[in-house]
């Protein structure tokens, strides 16, 4: 039945994405592969240097510490975001009033760009003028330096990222919650299960597919956390919030070492791939499809 004409039409419809795959996926990946074996400063032609960039990478402490920073950021951000989003979604899933209004409040940070968020967050975390230290003062706690403190900068960035992203993830969970059949809860009530029991045995498994999606999206976000860090700290103080993507950008567009930057990009590819595979494996074990 599928005539040649039909297939041609279908291909024509899909052609934008075919162009996308060639120009925006295949080309970057291959070009990065080539560049990672060269010394390229954007002015002179690339010069083949073999594995030099990769050997430098192995001994580059700043690179490894950027990977560590990325890991810490992810470990703080992903679980906090997921748990908070689920709690808020459960609260929002009650038959209460003003839902659009309340939901809207959580979306304001979502729709704000990072440039806006940077200044809004400054009103909270600015060590001199921010409200966070004022609040700590009420409890007799010493003021903190937040984004200026090497120890606190990543937790603070993660908190801001959660604050910005939780509304979006909350709505993802809300959709999943509304898809859980009400009868299950009613059945559990008849059996005498308490609220925690219902949450643990009906809600959590019921949204496990979405939990998985939230985890994947959050992990991708941490790898894309470039804009947040670029705008808010530029990797400071003294490298404490230098994430790997920012380190790569710096090598490429600040120091003009595009070959080295390409090698970093390839390592990032490998890590993303690894994470995706691990998550797919976990999905098979964890997710209960109702």
């Amino acid at each position: 039945m599928a005539s040649l004409r039909d297939r041609l039409w279908a291909t024509l419809f899909a052609s934008p994405y075919l162009a996308h795959l060639i120009l925006l996926t295949a080309w970057p990946v291959l070009a990065l592969a080539y560049l990672s074996f060269t010394d390229y400063d954007t002015v002179s032609d690339p010069e083949w240097v073999g594995l030099d960039n990769y050997t430098r990478l192995l001994g580059d402490e700043a690179f490894w510490s950027s990977l560590g920073n990325t890991g810490v950021f992810a470990l703080l951000y992903v679980p906090a975001q997921t748990v908070l989003a689920l709690v808020l979604a459960v609260a929002l899933n009650q038959k209460i009033r003003f839902i659009p209004l309340l939901r809207g409040a959580y979306f304001v940070p979502v729709v704000s760009s990072w440039v806006v968020i940077a200044y809004v967050a400054d009103s909270v975390f600015n060590p001199r003028t921010g409200s966070a230290n004022t609040v700590l003062g009420w409890f007799g706690i010493d003021p903190q330096a937040w984004l200026n403190s090497p120890a606190l900068v990543i937790p603070t960035l993660a908190a801001v990222a959660v604050w910005k992203g939780v509304g979006y993830m909350m709505v993802l969970f809300l959709a999943a919650l509304q898809a859980i059949p009400q009868e299950r809860y009613e059945a559990a009530m008849v059996d005498g299960g308490n609220a925690w029991h219902r949450f643990r045995h009906i809600t959590v498994p019921g949204v496990s597919g979405t939990t998985f999606l939230v985890l994947v999206l959050s992990t991708i976000t941490t790898l894309q956390a470039f804009e947040q860090v670029y705008v808010m700290t530029d990797g400071g103080p003294s490298g404490a919030s230098e994430l790997t993507v920012l380190y790569m950008y710096r090598q490429g567009f600040q120091f003009f070492q595009l070959g080295y930057a390409a090698a970093i990009a390839w390592v990032l590819f490998a890590i993303i791939l690894l994470f995706t595979l691990v998550q797919l494996w976990l999905q098979r074990r964890w997710v209960h499809y109702a």
């Binding site: 991708i220 894309q224 950008y249 993303i272 791939l273």
Partner: peptide
């Protein structure tokens, strides 16, 4: 491609 952040491919 969803897994390929723009920032990683920005140089090419």
């Amino acid at each position: 491609t969803m897994m390929l952040p723009t920032v990683v491919t920005i140089i090419p």
